[in-house]
Nucleic acid binder design. Sequence first.
DNA 1: CAGTGGTCTAGACCACGGG
DNA 2: CCGTGGTCTAGACCACTGG
Lengths: 233, 233
Amino acid sequence: MSTQARIGWEDVRAEALRRIRAREWPAGALIPSEEALAQELGCARTTVNRALRSLAESGLLDRRRRAGTRVAELPVRAAKLNIPLIAEEIRARGAAPSHRCLARSEETPPPAVAAALGTDAARPLLHVETLYLADARPFAHELRWINPAGVKGAAAADFAQTAANEWLLRHAPFSHGTLDYCARLPAPEAAAALDCDTAQPTLVLDRTTHGAEASITWVRLTYAPGYHFTITL
Amino acid sequence: MSTQARIGWEDVRAEALRRIRAREWPAGALIPSEEALAQELGCARTTVNRALRSLAESGLLDRRRRAGTRVAELPVRAAKLNIPLIAEEIRARGAAPSHRCLARSEETPPPAVAAALGTDAARPLLHVETLYLADARPFAHELRWINPAGVKGAAAADFAQTAANEWLLRHAPFSHGTLDYCARLPAPEAAAALDCDTAQPTLVLDRTTHGAEASITWVRLTYAPGYHFTITL
DNA sequence: CAGTGGTCTAGACCACGGG
DNA sequence: CCGTGGTCTAGACCACTGG
């Protein structure tokens, strides 16, 4: 009698991956149906489905009803990008995180910010400027506009104690948003806070966050020169 | 008689999301077990499982056997980052992609590249320099080192016809790799190719790619000044 | 129209890990 | 120990879409 181990969806996934890599299933080719694979590998169709769905999510397969499953011509790899709290990011780099609330006021925002948040350009928003430090060295400078209509309690929050980004994450559940990375020379106030030359390139992240009803916040994060972020595939 | 629509996992997901956002399930709280939810919502446990797994993958729930499922204290949002071909990226921006192979040779790489690829520092690698254009305007400059041991046929490939990145994607199936973004001043050859000032900040992407057995390629991509990339959550 | 993937179900066993 | 999530199964119906 054979001591067959039970076939799991990860086994099926691995086998399919092997066939793709070995070109047994060439790029663009139609692969066997779930039904056929299930029979061949000796497991339920559900299990095959789970495995192939996983590969499709990674961009290695194209699946369409009726048309069947094909090996992607150009494997567009999809990477999972985690967007942690800044404090977590600093900790992950082996440094001790801290922050300083540099400024806080209520002002009418620049038109671009009002547009991004969809607020009346004449209405004042909460404006917060924060410096994040790693082992007491400047790590990133944050310039933030908060829409009071989208977050209740923001006016009373103490951002010296809890950093603005963490406070918002806890109190303003958001549903969607946009990240935008680019390389720039730092704005004068960012360079001053980061204690760096205005001629040194910095990585700048603009983020807009919306809740279910109203917009929540617009942030410009200027990372200290030399910052780089890594994604593993 | 009630004309109940069948409950799908996306319905369960939506309902769970609603409860999280409405704080019916507060941050950090234990939510009902799959079994209980299935009974409450009138569907199979499998369906609930699929929904909650999906939310856990997005970072909104923490699930552990025996301990149950909790609402994440700090919803670490996970974004799916697609890494397309450069030509596709240019096309997505509404421009016509093209490329020029600027140089090609066999040389011993810089130590850092040999280290990243895990090759003997004394062994020559294939070196390719490419300029990508969007509507005939410089878009990005690519400096690439290819490990011949990891890719068969590379020596004979015509990179003037098919861009190096596309050729490799088609001929060298890769299993894993690393992306590293940072802001820098462009190297002189990159600035020259991009026809820009060496004092203008550029976004630089270093990518190392490994196949199942050997390393494949190391690339430094310098995007033209003003480039920015957007991620939607 | 018919074949393929997408999903639901009810039941079952297992692995993990908190108490 | 034993409750909870993780997964497998067999069968079923549905949705989409190519021919």
